[in-house]
Design a protein around this nucleic acid. Sequence first.
DNA 1: ATAGGGTTAG
Length: 586
Amino acid sequence: MSVQGLGMQFKDYDSLLNECVNQKSLIGGQRVQAHMIKTHYLPPVYLRTRLIVFYLKCEVLRDARMVFDEMPERNVVSWTAMISGYTKCGLYSDALTLFVQMLRSGTYPNEFTFATVLTSCVGASGFEHGRQIHSLIIKTPFEFHIFVGSSLLDLYAKAGKIHEAHTVFEALPERDVVSCTAIISGYAQLGLDKEALELFCALQKEGMPSNFVTYASVITALSGLAAFEYGRQVHAHVLRSELSSYIVLQNSLIDMYSKCGNLSYARKVFEIMPERTVISWNAMLSGYSKHGIGKTVVDLYNRMNTENKVKPDSTTLLTVLSGCSHGGMEDIGLKFFDEMKGRRNGVDLSIELYGCVVDLLGRAGQLERALQFVKEMPFEPNAAIWGSLMGACRVHKNVEIGKIAGRKILEIEPENAGNYVILCNLYACEGNWEEVRKLRELMKEKAVIKEPGKSWIEFDHTIHTFYASDRSHPRKEEVFLKVRELSDRIKTAGYCPDLSSVLYDVDEEQKERMLLGHSEKLALAFGMINVSETKPIRIMKNLRICVDCHNFAKFVSGVYGREVFVRDKSRFHHIVNGVCLCGDYW
DNA sequence: ATAGGGTTAG
């Protein structure tokens, strides 16, 4: 395009700038601006705002800000465009600062401003700021504006206030794809998977419009539920629709099949992708990692580096290392870590990565070295670090180091019940019942409430959920009898209930009864009754599986010749012929 | 002219 000759007028500049915005032509726009300066043309607010938008489009935030700062006067659009620029670059607190300046300058925000600035609040995890802005919005006509409302409900949902989010959603006079997706994904991101799925179904019946983001969100909920049959149906629907080529959607399918325990389906989706992002690789790697298949994790990671199309990020490193740990490949994992530390590779090593190393050393039984490693870390060790050291001490029955880790962790996280349980187990294996008793008292004192354990199993297109000592399932009698029967049978093969897993101060007989009531045993028994002998039994649990239930499942697998999968909070246990791929370390 | 929802890891 030509910017030669004088006599350029407003509409000429306007159309030139429009063209540069559309083509993202940085040089073109810069020439337009240079021409304005050369000819002493003083652009009005409108054109200066167009320049800001142009620079933002070309991702040159600094130059956009320069134009903004030099404006003799600004209107709501100039302010909003600049705030949105910061938001899109992830500079949320700068965006919020600018918003405050805007209010001070006496410019009234409009629906565009509010929608943007609420997004900044979400990005900055600034829920309180968001709430304050909500009270500003109440005084405007924008509270029920669909864009503003979507941001608002997202704000509440991401702060964990799903009820308030739902209220905002219900109050919207109209609904569209984005607002519907926002509320569904709000439930899914909080782990309220069943609610997310139900809402999706209900809204679909009402004719909700949906797109690939909607499906990505509902597939996330299905991953949490491990609803394999349902997931396949949704996948089939996606294939029939125009949505199947979205990478985000394929990524969520990889994760969904992995979390349903079906790695071969996940791999199939992964292999036929014409293009992959780092998330595709990470999702696939994580699938193998959680199943304890360390060798494939390493092979896949090597292939990723050989192909050299997608660069590993910090999540990749974490997944590979945790894959080595879950897969019982301590030496290779430690070698990886040294390599990473040597290279750095532009990716910062995170505290979580150091946590993986503690896991690796712990698994290898090198507890002294693990403790030393924790002491020398460039981070202040957190609860997760001490937790993995304590877990390692429980497995290797090292009470001495376990106590050190335990003391630290109770300082940092006195409210986490799981910590007390592991520490109690540790003291119990030493026969130190006095300490166990003290810990129980402490737990009562701090009023720690354990998240109720639940397990579920998909059978006959239904999800059957069991709670500890559950009396609610319609076939409870049958299930309880089956647990007894299994227990009696495997006892003859050497199963011995691990009474130290019970934290309550009751007699031994009752302890055993409580153990038999654990939700994963109920789900396993239900599976033994109903699932065809040729098929594996797949159980899901919301917490980590306890030592006794793990042992129970191994014996059932061995004695009855069944393949059992248990997906717990952190990984898969794949049990064949009485042996678990986790190597009894988790 | 300026605007809202999404996929992986722990």
